[in-house]
Structure formats: structure tokens, C-alpha cells
Nucleic acid binder design. Structure first.
Length: 692
DNA sequence: TCTATGATGAAGACATGC
DNA sequence: GCATGTCTTCATCATAGA
């Protein structure tokens, strides 16, 4: 079974479970990781908060020498940061048998006993942001201390209303001259000095002019460049809104508009044409958000599978909140592996394997319509899958290795909201071993090459020089080659997925063989002006059809009349082929793919298979804005399934140069998947038509 | 200009032994 | 639990040759 994430509450619970499970004696409570987690719990202004740091330290120091029968469990909870007195009291009340109950009671007591004076770290944080203590105390009382997002939002609202009133009384004090802004900007005075780069000094374009203007205003070139780029993305409006709010230029109407997708879309659409004022707002707001992050390093709340998620209506705002938390989670994930890959990597189950899981509880926000399905490499840098999951409504990823479906490994993570019961595989089963897939290789396969499965099919193949080098190395030895040669050859065979095609002769797979292994029709990528290199590249970036079809199979009964599909980063049409092979009619397909070669491949397949539905090509995900989606949804009556496997370039271990995670140039397109999915959900749920 | 080729490690999961 | 070694990884870049 997949293991849960290790968010704070779960981590604490895990620790307690370990204790109650009798393994506490082997648990090292003093490891650095545990201390980090403890510190997290201690200072978090959430439900995990403890009364105060001093009490925690004092009790912890006194902690490990208890002699009473329940001293061990008390010590453990004290080690988590609760005061000894509180733990003792709770253990006395609840007994020491049910550690979950104890934990819940401790959390409850902690929340109820947080100091309400200005000594509160939570209040200090907000006061430090520039809000008045009186206002902070009031808002904290209204919202409770566990919900820092609500507190911040309410504080911003009050501030905006106050300042707006002030501006209305004194119009000259508006815009960038408010005290708020002054104090805030002073806090961000560590701008880089003005850059005198040649490019900026001689702007030859509109972008250059804006860059020059921004740098002259005192922003660093890097900041200006980033914001110029980002203003084409969907984050602009949120940051602008927050900043406008902070400086008091935003009325209640504007505040409400934060959550208005139409306004959000306007900014997205105007991104490249953003005015200087918008760009400066963006920079300031980003810095404010950065500072807010620093002030609330521990605000994150544990997620549950549960029902506590409110209806996902404020998608733009939510997206930004999730983005804001990204850095915090990344830091946390660096301390603790939040997502653990299952071994064996069979997700919720694969055909012919035991331990099938057929039930799961999805977070309310994740429920369809539409169904969604996101895919990427399983072995991404640490923290990436935590982030992906968080951005996709906290749905737990399903990690599956396609070696359970075909003769090649393909370790991938899938985040989806599909049902998981009554799955069925495509029949007939594809060959599961190398020899089944390529029977002619058996004749030449040496006994010392024990491979039965190929490794991941990638985008590059071995060179002729390498296979020749292997041939010569083997021919130099009489009979069975020495161990050193065997080791070298095996290493290269594993690395490049070489198969034996003659005596002492290995070769990389042909493109049509890769097609077969991945479950595509023969010659799917052949012809139409595509080179062999590009065929390997397109195939290497694709789905494994049998794996994906197994997950999609639950849709067959649900859409007997056909399905409307939004296929993002569609590549050579893995999702389309999988649905087709399942016998699910494709009614309306909107396929978004940047590479013309891939679009041609999908179009060609569409025509060859005599599809009766309509296929709409879109080149760039950036083209999919609210209006475009609204039009498409209006035409089709909504999407039944949104599928996407965003670029993995910056995630895969094969990338030696730019393994930058989700912040990488290409892999950042994941956030466009989120944006578009949110938009689709929003429009289909009627939110968009409700506002304005 | 396009295509194919060769050189370029690090990160992280996992198994093993102590 | 920890150190160590093994194995795997939807790739990128520079360059030569057609």
C-alpha cells in the first residue's frame, strides 16, 4: 500500500503510532530530522502549536528521567514539544493506551491555551508585517489561531478598507504614497544596484524598454527579467491584487475580484502587454509574498483526505496560496522524504499481482467532474511529488512501474481522481519479458546476461561505435568472456537497452520495437517527415499505453456514448490511443502539443483510425485561457477527462545539466496543467458565470 | 540547416553487511 | 541504525558530416 505523506500531523501521528506499536525503543528521538520536525511542531502557529517555547524547552530538559509506569509515553509527547504538565494531565485523563486520543487532546489544549497577549509569536508576526496589534488581536480572535491564511486575508481586508477610506478623504495620498507602502518598501530596500548591461542600455524592443525602465526604478535586472517573464503567467493578478491591497488602492470590489476568474484571465491575457505599473506592482507584491513566507515559515497545515476541504471555487487564489507554500514545503521535504515510492511499484494494483487496493477516499476538492489524470517521472527530485500532489488537491500519487505491463520498465507517478475499482487490462496481454517481446534474440542471448526486462525507454539510443566496441571486446575473448568484459558489456546493455541480435553483437531497439513495447500501433511515429532521432525522442516522452489504459478502463462503463477529452502536452497521443484501444469512443478531443511533429502524428493516427469525433489542435497551453476554454466547454458541453504529462526534462535523473525540479524552464509547465484544470473545473461548475 | 553522434555525472532508491 | 556499494534515470550540449 502506498505510504502517506509525512506532513506535520501525519508525522506526529506516525511517531505516536510507532510508539504505540511497540517500536519506540528503537526509535531515535534525537536525530536531526526528528528535531527539525519537533521544532516545526513547537513553533507552528497552527493546531500543532505548543503553549510556548520556554515551557517546551524546560519540560524537555526535565523529560527523560521519569519513573512512573507511563513515563515513557509522557517523555515521547514531551519530546514532541508539549509541556510535561499538559501531557501528564492528558495521559491521566485519557489513559496511555490510545495515543491518537492523547495527541488530539494535546493539540486541542495547545490551541486553547496559546497566549493571547502581544507576546504571542503569531501576533508578533502579523504586527511585524505592519498591522496594528489591536487589529491583529481582533482578527486572530475572529479567525482562530490555526488558520493563518484566513487571518492574513482578513487583516488585508481591514487594512484595505481603512486605507481606502483614508484615500477617499485625502485623494492626494493615494497610490504609492501611503504609509503602508512606504514602510513596506523600506523593508525591501536590498535591491541590487542598477545594471548597466549593454542590452538594457540599448533597448531595442518593447520588452527592453520595460526592462530598462524597471532597472532605472531601482529593481535589479534579475528581478525585472523574472517579472517580465512571469507576467505572462497566471500569477500576476494575485500578486498585483495583494500589493494593491497592501497599499490601499483596492476597494472592497477589488478585493472580491481577487477571486474572480474573469479578472484573473484578463491579466493573464494582457500579461505580455503589462504596463510598467503592473510590473512594479508584481515585483513589490512578490517581495511582500516572499517576506510573508519568511514571517510564516511554519504556517502550513496538515492535510487530510478529508472532507474539510471547502468547495474549490476560488481557484486563482487557491493556486497562488499553493504556490506560496511551495517553498515552505520544499524546505520541509528536504528534511523528510514526504513521498515514498512503493516497492514493488504497483500503485493501487496491477493485473496478476496480489494486494490490490480498490478503495480510497479522495479529498472533496478533487472530485470530478471532470476526471483528471496527471503523469510524470516517479524518480523526480525530492519534494517534487509532494508539490504536485498538493497542487492537485492533495490527491495521493499512484506510482506504477510499467514493467508489470510490458517488457520495459517505466517508473511513473500518476495523480488522478479516477475510480480504482473494477479496473481491467487491455487484452491480449503484451509480452512481459524481453524474450517474449523479441524471440529472435533468445538464440544469441548469453547466459551471463540475466536481464528479463529492459530498463526505461529513453529518448536517446546507443551509438554504432559503442556496439562495435562491445563486439570487438567480446571477439577478443575465447569462449565465455572474462568477468571484467562481462561487467562492462552488461553495464552498457543496461544503460542503453541493448539486445542481442547476433554472435557477440548487440544493438539498440528500432523505433518500431519501442512503439511495440510502449503499446502503440506499429509505425505510429513513422513517416510524415520525422527522423529516427525524433521518433526516439517522441516515443521516449510518451505514455506506456497498457499502463494508462488500465487506469482509464474504469471509464468505459461511465462513457458508453463517448468521451470529451482535454489532452494537455498530448505528445504522440498516448491518452487518445489508450482510450481508443479500450473501446471508449472519442467524441471531442482538444489536444495541446507544442511540437508540430507530434501534432502531425496524432492527426495522422486520428485519420487512420477513422475517428468519428472531432480533434482540435492547439499548439501552446498558454493559448488555453478562460475565454477559449469557456467556448470549448460551451461547444462540447464540458470535458469528461483532463489528461496531461507535463515535461519531465527538469525532473529526470538523466538530465545532467538542468535538473531544476518544478522550477525548471520546461517542467514549470506543470503549473499550467493546474491552471487549466482549475479553470475547467471552475467553468464547468458554473463559478465563472456567477461572477459579473 | 538538419541529423546523428559522442561525451558529459549527479541524485536517489535500494540492497547488503556490520 | 549506519556506511557502503550498486543500479537506474521520459537528457543536454557541442560537434562533425551530409
Amino acid at each position: 500500500m502506498l505510504r502517506s505523506f509525512s506532513w506535520p500531523i501525519l508525522q506526529v501521528k506516525k511517531m505516536v503510532d510507532n510508539n504505540s506499536g511497540g517500536e519506540a525503543d528503537n526509535f531515535d528521538w534525537d536525530t536531526e530530522d526528528d528535531l527539525e520536525i519537533d521544532n516545526y511542531a513547537i513553533s507552528a502557529p497552527s493546531g500543532l502549536s505548543t503553549p510556548c517555547g520556554e515551557a517546551v524547552l524546560g519540560s524537555a530538559e526535565a523529560g527523560s528521567s521519569g519513573n512512573s509506569p507511563n513515563s515513557k509515553i509522557i517523555d515521547h509527547f514531551v519530546g514532541m514539544g508539549f509541556s510535561r504538565e499538559m501531557v501528564a494531565k492528558v495521559v491521566e485523563e485519557k489513559g496511555e493506551e490510545n495515543s491518537d486520543l492523547i495527541l488530539e487532546a494535546l493539540l486541542e489544549y495547545s490551541a486553547s491555551t496559546l497566549p493571547s497577549s502581544s507576546n504571542s509569536k503569531l501576533i508578533d508576526h502579523f504586527v511585524g508585517m505592519g498591522f496594528s496589534e489591536e487589529m491583529v488581536v481582533k482578527v486572530v480572535q475572529e479567525n482562530g489561531e490555526g488558520n493563518t491564511d484566513s487571518i492574513l486575508e482578513t487583516l488585508l481586508t481591514y487594512s484595505a478598507l481603512e486605507t481606502t477610506a483614508s484615500v477617499q478623504q485625502n485623494p492626494d495620498s493615494g497610490n504609492c504614497s501611503s504609509d503602508y507602502e512606504g514602510s513596506l518598501l523600506n523593508d525591501f530596500s536590498d535591491f541590487d544596484s542598477f545594471s548597466e548591461s549593454e542590452e538594457i542600455m540599448s533597448p531595442s524592443s518593447e520588452e527592453g524598454r520595460k526592462l530598462l525602465h524597471l532597472t532605472k526604478m531601482g529593481y535589479s535586472e534579475a528581478e525585472a527579467s523574472v517579472v517580465m517573464e512571469r507576467c505572462g503567467l497566471c500569477y500576476l493578478i494575485h500578486f498585483c491584487n495583494i500589493f494593491l491591497l497592501m497599499v490601499g488602492r483596492m476597494s472592497k470590489f477589488h478585493l472580491d475580484s481577487i477571486k474572480d476568474p474573469r479578472l484573473f484571465n484578463c491579466c493573464i491575457e494582457n500579461g505580455p502587454d503589462s504596463t510598467i505599473e503592473e510590473l512594479t506592482d508584481f515585483i513589490c507584491a512578490a517581495q511582500i509574498a516572499k517576506a510573508a513566507d519568511a514571517l510564516f515559515p511554519l504556517e502550513d497545515k496538515p492535510f487530510s483526505n478529508g472532507s474539510s476541504h471547502k468547495k474549490r471555487r476560488n481557484w486563482g487564489y487557491d493556486l497562488l496560496l499553493r504556490k506560496k507554500k511551495l517553498k515552505l514545503e520544499k524546505r520541509f521535504d528536504e528534511d523528510d522524504d514526504a513521498v515514498h515510492l512503493p516497492n514493488p511499484m504497483i500503485g493501487f494494483g496491477v493485473p496478476n499481482e496480489p494486494d490490490q487496493i480498490t478503495n480510497r477516499v479522495l479529498p472533496e476538492a478533487a472530485l470530478g467532474p471532470p476526471y483528471f489524470y496527471y503523469e510524470n517521472v516517479a524518480l523526480a527530485p525530492k519534494g517534487v511529488w509532494t508539490t504536485i500532489s498538493r497542487f492537485l488537491y492533495d490527491v495521493e500519487p499512484e506510482f506504477v512501474d510499467s514493467k508489470f505491463f510490458c517488457a520495459a520498465a517505466r517508473k511513473r507517478g500518476y495523480v488522478h481522481n479516477l475510480p480504482i475499482d473494477n479496473r481491467f487490462p487491455l487484452l491480449p496481454f503484451p509480452p512481459r519479458t524481453i524474450h517474449e517481446a523479441f524471440p529472435l534474440t533468445r538464440k544469441w542471448w548469453p547466459s551471463w546476461d540475466t536481464r528479463t526486462k529492459l530498463n526505461c525507454l529513453q529518448t536517446c539510443i546507443a551509438s554504432a561505435r559503442l556496439t562495435d566496441k562491445i563486439r570487438k571486446a567480446l571477439e577478443d575473448s575465447d569462449g565465455e568472456p572474462p568477468l571484467g568484459i562481462q561487467k562492462f558489456v552488461l553495464e552498457q546493455c543496461r544503460k542503453w537497452n541493448l539486445v542481442w541480435v547476433g554472435r557477440n553483437k548487440v544493438a539498440p531497439l528500432e523505433p518500431d520495437e519501442v512503439e511495440m513495447l510502449l503499446g502503440f500501433p506499429r509505425n505510429h511515429t513513422r513517416g510524415g517527415g520525422i527522423s529516427r532521432t525524433d521518433r526516439y525522442k517522441s516515443l521516449g516522452n510518451s505514455f506506456q499505453i497498457d499502463t494508462v489504459a488500465y487506469h482509464f478502463s474504469v471509464l468505459k462503463d461511465k462513457f458508453p456514448g463517448g468521451i470529451n477529452l482535454l489532452s494537455l502536452f498530448s505528445g504522440i497521443g498516448g491518452a487518445e490511443v489508450a482510450l481508443h484501444q479500450l473501446g471508449i469512443p472519442l467524441k471531442n478531443v482538444v489536444a495541446v502539443e507544442i511540437a508540430e511533429l507530434n501534432r502531425n502524428i496524432l492527426r495522422s493516427w486520428w485519420e487512420q483510425t477513422n475517428q468519428r469525433g472531432t480533434l482540435t489542435d492547439i499548439q501552446d497551453v498558454q493559448e488555453l485561457n478562460g475565454d477559449r476554454l469557456e467556448q470549448l466547454i460551451k461547444n462540447f458541453g464540458g470535458f469528461d477527462l483532463v489528461v496531461g504529462g507535463s515535461p519531465c526534462n527538469n525532473l529526470t535523473g538523466s538530465n545532467r545539466y538542468h535538473r531544476d525540479g518544478l522550477e525548471g524552464k520546461d517542467s514549470a509547465l506543470f503549473f499550467d496543467f493546474c491552471r487549466i484544470l482549475d479553470l475547467v473545473k471552475c467553468i464547468m461548475n458554473g463559478t465563472k458565470s456567477m461572477i459579473i
